[in-house]
Design a binder for these strands. Structure first.
Lengths: 126, 126
DNA sequence: ATTCTTGTTATATAATATATATAACACACA
DNA sequence: TGTGTGTTATATATATTATATAACAAGAAT
């Protein structure tokens, strides 16, 4: 699996790493039960600190995407994360709203936004 | 116009403020040319520091949402922001992608996401 | 002219977040 | 008995967020 990070980005490295892994899981390039590199291996691979990788792994574990066995390492959660609950849906709604508002202000219309969404679904293999 | 801020949120106050204003413009509750409160008035109103308001105003000016006349105050840009260019569209795409990936992992399907989008369009008066 | 209100600039301070560096620990496994 | 896991602990550096005060420049109102 490719991990592309932008060190110039305002988005923190650990966030970018989380996103890459979540996208990998959504695309099923990362399959349930699959082993991920150790914090040290991945950190060394990407050229970042092991704590930065660990922070991403820990948060993904918290969110139910990963399982971490103390000595066996990190694996994609066999059952996947919990289904979205109402709290998550509300948060997603609140996250999307300003993004869409800004797009509308910039004259991106509903049709174009749906088209962009469809492209993304496509990229994620849906 | 109502401004609702969540001081417990991880989202910075100035970001929340930007979002509220952008949403206001998208909903046309804030109309082109309309005067916004002075940095001091709004800060005092919300109970935050004037520099926090100023930061939001400055960034919104940078993004073409607002015009700031040195002594006449802050107004909603009469012409609105620039139309979305390819760079913006690419950034929006990259912002949406991990959000959608996470939603899909949590078994929110394409249909439900489109429904959520439609609800948001509705809230924004489209 | 004088006063008030603008945004603006300058300093300072504190708390938090991000990222790195090093070292050590506990424990399974070969 | 090492080796490789994640984990924990410290320390450091930098950037971000938010606040507090003060002062400045210039248009607007009186």
């Amino acid at each position: 699996m490719y991990i592309s990070l932008d060190f110039e980005s305002e988005v923190p490295i650990y966030e970018q790493l989380k996103n890459e892994i979540i996208i990998g899981i959504a695309k099923k390039e990362l399959t349930p039960g699959e082993r991920l590199p150790s914090v040290r291996a991945l950190a060394s691979d990407i050229g970042i600190n092991l704590h930065t990788v660990n922070k991403a792994y820990q948060q993904l574990k918290q969110d139910g995407f990963l399982l971490i066995h103390r000595q066996r390492g990190v694996v994609v959660h066999p059952d996947g994360p919990e289904k979205a609950d109402e709290i998550y849906k509300k948060q997603l709604h609140e996250t999307l709203k300003p993004l869409i508002a800004e797009a509308l202000c910039k004259e991106i219309d509903q049709k174009e936004l749906f088209a962009m969404m469809t492209t993304i679904f496509d990229e994620l293999g849906r």
